[in-house]
Structure formats: structure tokens, C-alpha cells
Amino acid sequence: MTRVLRRRETSIALALVILVVVATTANDAFLLSSDGFRDLLLAPSLLVLLAVGQAAVIITRNVDLSVSSTLGLVAFATGSMFVSSPGLSVPVVMLLGILLGAALGAVNGGLVTSARVPSLVITLGTLYAYRGITVIWAGTDRISAGDMPRSFLAIGTERVLGIPVVALVALVVVVGAGVYLGYARTGREFYAIGSEPVAARLCGLPVGRRVFFAFVLSGTLAGLAGVLFAARYATVASNAGTGLELQAVAAAVIGGVAIFGGSGTVAGAALGAVLLATIDRALPILGIPDFWQQAVVGVLIIGAIVLDRVLAVRTARRLRSTGVAEAVRPLPAARVTGGVP
């Protein structure tokens, strides 16, 4: 949209390339082995899905912390459906899983738009609640590979032209959501709502409906990620996906989605997710224990928001000083007499 935003995506992509090059130099299996290449694409895929949904929500000046619990619940539900109803075909189960995610997102969206309570609080609550439901349902059970059909599990491992199917799905979602937010009428309205909610109402935008849909979108993508989680890891316990919500927020923020809405792109959020997942894999190769990964994430989040702020302040200052030219241009009038001491 603007050069500044585009620059964020290029800089993230650049950082990613440098990281891959450095890691590959340290150990060429990082990229050049068949597994290395696959992991490079596969590792971030689920996080990309969550980050895309998160970006849509944050752009409307909201946040969805419940995505990790939605992912966990859907993953377990998907596995359970295979166990309890072996008659259902794989696509039907997958569809039901995704719909469950959409429904959970709709609960978030409904509560946020109807109660006028910040989404942070609502989704904090549903983060607990959805996870709790999963835990009650699963107990100590876990779904394992034997419980799920081979054709389903194949989705998690298969490749097309050397590219993992899961990564292709993520790519399709990024492109689809990118086109929607970038070029659909309703998608552009997400930006307007997040940019200036008061103006959005004065413009007659259906703010509530759009925000609701953003949450449904986020839930749907978390549901999709849950289904793919089950297929890829082949085992699902009640703690599936715990903690991913912060990584999803981090990915979006690092990718240039402003935490207070209105700007950023899906592609940026996706790149942020890829960067995070790649850092995770690269650290051990660079001789840093991967325990430090989270600290790096923290530094990146803080760095990204500080950078955004510094840029904004600089813009504001520049505008103020160009304003001088206007305000201080020579007056058409002579100074009027007065009692200045």
C-alpha cells in the first residue's frame, strides 16, 4: 500500500534470506538436504495459518488470544471423529473440523461485538475455556496414528513437486486472505475500522459485522491449522498447540501489522511466522541452545513495535515542522498597534 509498509516486508524477507544463508553455511543440511528443504517449508506452515487469521483480527484493532486453544480443540475433535465414526469420509471430517473452528471464532466474535468488552479479555477467557473443554474431553487420552486413516495422515507428509501439501495449503490461504484484505470491498473495510473506528461509524461501515467476521476468519484458520496438526503430527494430546497464541501475535507484529490496527498485510504476517519458525530451527545449528528461541522472539516483538513507534514519531515531527511553513508564512497584515510592554 505504501512504500513504508512494503519496506517492512522486504526487510523481513531479507532477514529470512540472511538467516537461511548463515545457517546453511554453518551446516549445509539446513537447506540443501531434502529434509532440510522440506522442514524449511513445513515448520512454519501451521503458524502461518494462525498468523494470517491473527493479522485480520489485529487489523480491525482487536486481538484473538484463543487461537491456540481452538487449534487444540479442533485437532482433538478431528482425531476423535475418526475414532467414533469410522464411516465418515476424510474430507467430511476435515470440513467438520474447520467448521468447528469457525464456530469457536463466531463465539469470540459474538461476545466481542455484543458486549463491548475488549477482545483481549474475551479471548483470554475463551483461551481458558476452549482448552479446558479439550482437557475435560481428552483427559489423559491421546489420539495416535493408528486411530486415523492413512489417507488423512498422508496429507501431513505428502509432497507435490517437492513441496509439502501443508505448505501449499498455507500458501493458498496467504494468497486468498491477501487478496481478500487487499482487494475486496469488505476486506478494505477491515483496515478502515482498525485505522479510525469513529470515522468508520460515521462512514456507515457495519463495524460489528466486519469485526465478527474477522474473528470467524481467525477461528476458521485456527480450525484448519488444527486439522492439519492432527494429520501432520499423527498424535494429538489435550495440550496440542499450547502457547502458539503468542507466537501468532508475535508473527503478525514482527511482520508489520500495527498492534493498534489499520495497517499491515497478510503477507507480512506470514513472513513473520516463517521468520520465527526458521529462527527456532536455526538457533541450534548456530550453536545457540534452542531454549533461547523465546527470548529472541521477545526481543523481536519489542524491536518491531519500538521501530514502528520511532517511525511514527519521526513522521509526526516532520509533519509538524512542515506545518511551520504554513503557520508562519508572512501575514498579509501590518502589525496592529498594541500595548506590548
Binding site: R185, R188, E189
Partner: peptide
């Protein structure tokens, strides 16, 4: 009451954005 993050053109047409091919903006 403008949207600071959007372009001038989008500001003018927000709420009834002009669409072209395929219903895209």
C-alpha cells in the same frame, strides 16, 4: 474524520469502494 492508514482515494470512497473486474476493488 479520515482514515490515516488508507490512501486518499480509498478515504473518498470508503463504504462504497469502486470495484472492477471480478468484484475486486
Amino acid at each position: 474524520t479520515l482514515f490515516p492508514d488508507l490512501s486518499v482515494a480509498e478515504n473518498v470512497f470508503m463504504g462504497r469502494l469502486l470495484t472492477g473486474r471480478g468484484g475486486l476493488v
